[in-house]
Design a binder for these strands. Structure first.
Lengths: 177, 177
DNA sequence: CTACAATCGGGACGGTCATCCCGGTTGCCG
DNA sequence: CGGCAACCGGGATGACCGTCCCGATTGTAG
């Protein structure tokens, strides 16, 4: 049985790391995370042998929520609406989570693979909705999932995040058939 | 009068660095650039005291061409057409120049400032065309230059660069009033 | 051709960071 | 309450990189 303090420390590290990754991105040193969590770097290393392990754990948590939302949208709305809603949801999530945005921007973390392996395949859900909407004739047929991801990255690149809604309007208008 | 070999070395470094930045991005070590140029790291350092100096020199060269093209477009076409052409031109330039794309994506280099100081203000040209096109009623009025840059980054984020034209069509359609 | 100064090469230095390791500590079972 | 195994802290280690420095070299003026 794991010791109580070990469980507490693991949770504390996870909580602090999630906060830091969200506000300051992935380039924060592990030592800094340990310091703010009030533990030693060794403690972080033991629970998450690699910095990537730590971030993956946090990522999966986020993606779990998105996947659930995706499924709800899919059954509640028509494909195109569900697609655009999910698109906006992912982008908004990334807009106030710097680390997530960086991961989406492809700084070494392959979110698709990570998510797919854990059953939280957000990209897959998006792709399915895209194809369905295209078959229904509501989204341009020549669009690929790669184009969609590129546009998502564009939204996340908006530093100010002030005009996110404007961008979404433009992109939505452009994607519609 | 500068020594002939110094001139040669400077040119060689510039040429090799441009090639490397284009194909492998900005994270290539300076030592590697020196090695491939057949010179010592000291030689690189002397001509370009900082890695940023080296990249800036290359950047300015690219931006000079873009600025010239921008001016031609502006006098040959109506604002909206010129805007979209310039947009496409910048994106295409970035598509086969990894370093340029990274700089646009904001990895520490402020292209706008660099370009403006040297008189190659691509962003400024783009902004002017945008406003003119908006006054002519051909582009949505709520768009800001920040939105435009975000969309540009999106295009450059397309790893495959296969569907660049598709993306441009989508974005153009979305931006039009 | 000679000598000197500009230039060169590449190793040294300093800084950053992720990961590993180990002596000290403490929760927990009996 | 005692003892041990699991756990803790944080310093040590090693990798990477940009920049600086200096002894060796070489172009060039005279």
């Amino acid at each position: 049985m794991a010791r109580a303090d070990a469980v507490r420390n693991r949770a504390k590290v996870l909580e602090v790391a999630a906060q830091i990754f969200a506000t300051e991105g992935l380039s924060v040193p592990v030592h800094e995370i340990a310091r703010r969590a009030g533990v030693g770097t060794g403690t972080v290393s033991r629970h998450f042998p690699t910095k990537e392990d730590l971030f993956t754990a946090i990522l999966l948590d986020r993606m779990a929520g998105l996947t659930r939302s995706a499924d709800e949208l899919a059954k509640r709305y028509d494909p195109a609406t569900a697609f655009f809603e999910l698109f906006a949801m992912v982008v908004r999530e990334g807009a106030h989570h710097l680390g997530l945005a960086e991961a989406l921007a492809g700084n070494g973390y392959d979110m698709d693979t990570i998510g797919a392996e854990a059953g939280f395949d957000v990209a897959g859900r998006l792709h399915t909705l895209l194809i369905m909407a295209q078959q229904a004739g509501t989204i341009r047929p020549e669009i690929g999932i790669g184009d969609v991801k590129a546009l998502m990255k564009g939204c996340l690149a908006d530093e100010a995040n002030k005009n996110l809604d404007t961008l979404l309007v433009v992109i939505t208008a452009g994607l519609r058939a």
